[in-house]
Simulated scan of single mutants.
Amino acid sequence: KFIATAWQHDELQLFDNALNNKHLVKVTHSTKVNTLVTALELVVNDMGIALLPEFLVQPHLAEGSIERVIPDTRGRAWHFYFLHKYQGEKPIHLTRFYELFRYYFAKSNI
């Protein structure tokens, strides 16, 4: 049973781990949720499978509470955007937070 997030539709873009070969796969979801955390909880509780980001599932993979169904396949890469409401120069604490975020995200090797 496929657990879909709100932004996943009836066709998924799947790639090999090198992101070279793109495959469009039609799926029928049994459940549709509106948060990643909800999708993960359903997977952890053996209620189906889901296509989830690496950073979210990494701890659960390490402890063995979930496993990869198709280990040689991954979803498309998603970009992060850092938004703020300042029209001029943003405050230094936002710049520092962004730098820390980038540093630790890059360090995680995801």
Rank of each mutant, 00 (worst) to 15 (best):
H79E: 09
V44Y: 03
P59K: 02
V57I: 15
V57Q: 09
L51E: 08
T73D: 00
A50T: 09
I66W: 05
I66E: 04
T73L: 06
F80T: 08
F80H: 12
I70A: 04
K90D: 05
I49Y: 08
L51Y: 00
R76T: 07
W78G: 02
Y98T: 09
A77G: 01
F55S: 15
I70L: 13
G88F: 02
R68A: 10
D72L: 03
A62I: 04
I70K: 04
F82C: 02
I92C: 00
A77T: 13
I70M: 08
R68L: 15
I66P: 02
E63N: 15
E89R: 05
I92E: 14
G75I: 10
E99H: 09
F80R: 08
T73M: 11
G64P: 14
R76I: 10
P71I: 13
A50V: 03
L94Q: 14
Y86Q: 12
F97V: 05
Q87V: 06
A50I: 01
P91G: 07
A50C: 14
G64I: 02
G75F: 08
K90T: 12
T73P: 07
Y86T: 06
T73I: 15
L52D: 09
L61E: 10
T95I: 13
T95N: 03
F82T: 00
R76C: 02
S65G: 03
I66K: 11
R74D: 01
E54M: 10
P53D: 13
Y81F: 12
L52A: 03
L61K: 08
G75R: 06
W78T: 14
Q87M: 07
E54T: 14
